[in-house]
Nucleic acid binder design. Structure first.
Lengths: 141, 141
DNA sequence: TTGAATTGTAACTAGAATCGTTACAGTTAT
DNA sequence: ATAACTGTAACGATTCTAGTTACAATTCAA
């Protein structure tokens, strides 16, 4: 499959919104920067809106802006807002319950998966959208 | 796509091998516990063999055993041995270079991606296959 | 030395997930 | 009223994983 780039796109989109301050941005304009279709952006914005990270307005002169200041949005919130799966997947088919290993391995792996995910969220929560936006701005083209 | 469960399968397979000590296990037997096809297991064992975590023998009475003791194999090595992608993917299409955000976001995201991956590896390196195997053994069925 | 048991690997299929695209209903400013 | 937007459904193209079959190469053992 194509790899899931929702988090990357979300960070991109939110950086655009951070840059535009309180002005509404159109999905079409954002799509031009991300280099994709406006519907893809609107779908993503829908998730970010549900997570209360952005506010959208329909109608003429509509568009989207941040719901909070960039310094008050952590990358962890963005990560949780978009649907970007787990670090590794558990078994596709249930292992054999007649095997002492097969019987118990899933529970252990599930635990480990959660622990890793917690670590990721912790690391991401040390960055705000503001921090990230500054990195983008500083970065030499 | 179906999610990538290589790491889960690898840990499962290596736990089986840890349990069997120095005895060779057949791919067919392992497949029975993982509940998949023997070829899938052999493919996985190929990767683990390249990473020098296991040793295989062809021919009659062949099979696979651990290359080292379970206490000397960390989960981080297993993670690196199998091909289980990144936490999040970068942009599918290259962003628009004419946009100040689009121009620089990828480099920043790439950095972040590496930092997160480093965190995962650090966390995984605190567990050995032995530790994990003990968790599986202790876990109530 | 023959035969049986195994691994290694190529090739193909089925199924799932993402992204892109078109289409259109609903909303809002002017 | 009309034009400019968002929200969302529906479908296709692409890509990835895992499952499967098939078979060559290797090794043990009688």
């Amino acid at each position: 499959m194509a790899a899931n780039s929702q988090f990357s796109m979300a960070v991109h989109v939110l950086s655009m919104l951070a840059r535009s301050k309180d002005e509404n941005l159109k999905s079409d304009f954002i799509a031009g920067s991300v280099n994709t279709n406006a519907v893809v952006i609107r779908r993503l914005l829908g998730q970010l809106s549900q997570a209360k990270l952005v506010v959208s307005q329909t109608g003429a002169n509509g568009g989207t802006r941040l719901a909070r200041r960039p310094s008050e949005i952590s990358l962890a919130e963005i990560y949780k807002a978009v649907n970007c799966g787990e670090v590794f997947a558990l078994h596709a088919k249930e292992p054999n319950r007649d095997c002492p290993v097969g019987r118990n391995i899933e529970a252990v792996l599930c635990c480990l998966q959660k622990e890793i995910d917690k670590g990721i969220v912790e690391k991401l929560s040390t960055y705000s959208l503001q921090n990230l936006f500054e990195m983008v701005a500083e970065n030499p083209a």
